[in-house]
Structures are given as C-alpha cells and as structure tokens.
Design a protein around this nucleic acid. Structure first.
Lengths: 102, 102
DNA sequence: TTGACATATCGACAAATTGCGATATTATAA
DNA sequence: TTATAATATCGCAATTTGTCGATATGTCAA
C-alpha cells in the first residue's frame, strides 16, 4: 500500500476526473468502440476520453496524467494509442484508508 | 444522502484538515482536556484544535468551517466555546459513494 | 523518408486555495 | 457596562489549479 492520500483526493476534486473514473467502471457503456479493442481489458485511449469529455485533447491528456500520478489509473501504450484503465488496487486502498484513517 | 462529493474531496485535499478529522476519531487521545467537557459527545473547541495544529487561530477556524460546509463535522455553540465533532453520517455516505460511483 | 494521426508538453492567464495578521463579533464575568 | 476571552471574518500575497491554444514528440503506413 503506497499511496499519497492528499494527491489522490486532489485528483478526485474535479468533476471531469471523477467522471472519467466512473466511466471507466463500465467503459463499453460510456465510450464509442475503438479498433476492436476490448476496453474492459485494455482500457480506453485519449481520443475516446477527449470526445466523451467534450474538452480539448490537451485537457483530457492532462487529466489522465493526473489520475495516473495519483495511482488511480494505469497506462499502456499500444502502437500509436495510449490506453488507460482503472487501477482497482489503489482504489481499494484508498477505500480502506477512508475506513481506517478518516 | 445529500452531499457534494467535489466539495468533500476538496476539504479532504489538505493535510491539516485530514489530521483534524483523524484526531476527532479519538479526541481524548489527541486533545488536551477542556473544562470537563466530554469530547467524545460534545467535540472539541477551536482553541484545542489551534493548539494541536500549531497554526493560527484564524486558520484553524477557517479549516473547521471548510470541514463543516462539506458536512464532515458538525458544530455546537456552548457558552463562549464552539465545539466541533465528526459527522459520521456524511463520512459513511462518502464512503458509500466511493464504493458505488468511483 | 514523408505524411498523417495520436499523444504529451509548454506557455499563458483567470480563478481558487493556502495561511497569515488585523479586526469584528459574541458571550461571560466582574 | 466594560474588560476579556473565544471565535469568525476580512483582506492580502503567494502558490496551485483549470483550461486552453500552440507546438513538440512518437508511431505507423505509404
């Protein structure tokens, strides 16, 4: 368990980032399909998030980076796409932190 | 269940405020006694928090107000003292929100 | 190699947050 | 009523965050 609660709460202190995390819970439901990729296993790419967010590519990329630095999502580059998906480990840990420390 | 997750996460995005919330879990352990008050039932006053925080009274008062606006603590004025204690309801709700929505 | 697309990063600027000192308000005791 | 202690609020400078447009970097296909 290696996480920075403050960094995590800051990452969660933004409606758009909260939505991204929520959408990633059931990506098939929220994102348009992409290159026959299994979103559940691999994740979704920046373009998909950008479209869904209705914000600029720059902002989407930065928000994903913030979530990643907080440990809430993981990243994997495949070809020219970068896929992001939830990191259930950290999400579980912060839940536990919530119950124990807060 | 009436809470603003963003406001709550912002309130939690600060080391001092996180500590206050944590200290209030077991106030007897963390605060110096005060006027024979039962801290567990009534809470702790701004002066106690100020002393423990080692910050100014102004900052302590503001941080408590932020936690209160987020619904994480409740306030009760008794005489010239204002006592604050945890609001377990909201804390439980945000935990549930975390498990369901995040 | 070049063109085109996907992503990351930089620079900017407004808005929000941090934490403080000074001051206003409230409540009690004398 | 006044002095005093406890708390809240105001105004501030410094820092961080939100969001963008522009540009740089990476990757594949032709």
């Amino acid at each position: 368990m290696c996480m920075e609660p403050i960094e995590i709460f800051k990452a969660l202190s933004n409606e758009s980032r909260l939505q991204i995390l929520h959408w990633l819970k059931d990506p098939e439901k929220h994102f348009t399909p992409h290159e026959g990729i299994d979103m559940r296993k691999i994740g979704v790419c920046v373009s998909q998030v950008t479209e869904k967010l209705k914000m600029t590519q720059s902002t989407a990329s930065q928000y994903l980076a913030i979530l990643e630095r907080a440990g809430l999502i993981t990243t994997e580059r495949i070809g020219k796409y970068t896929y992001y998906k939830r990191n259930e480990d950290t999400i579980r840990d912060i839940g536990a932190f919530f119950n124990n420390e807060i």
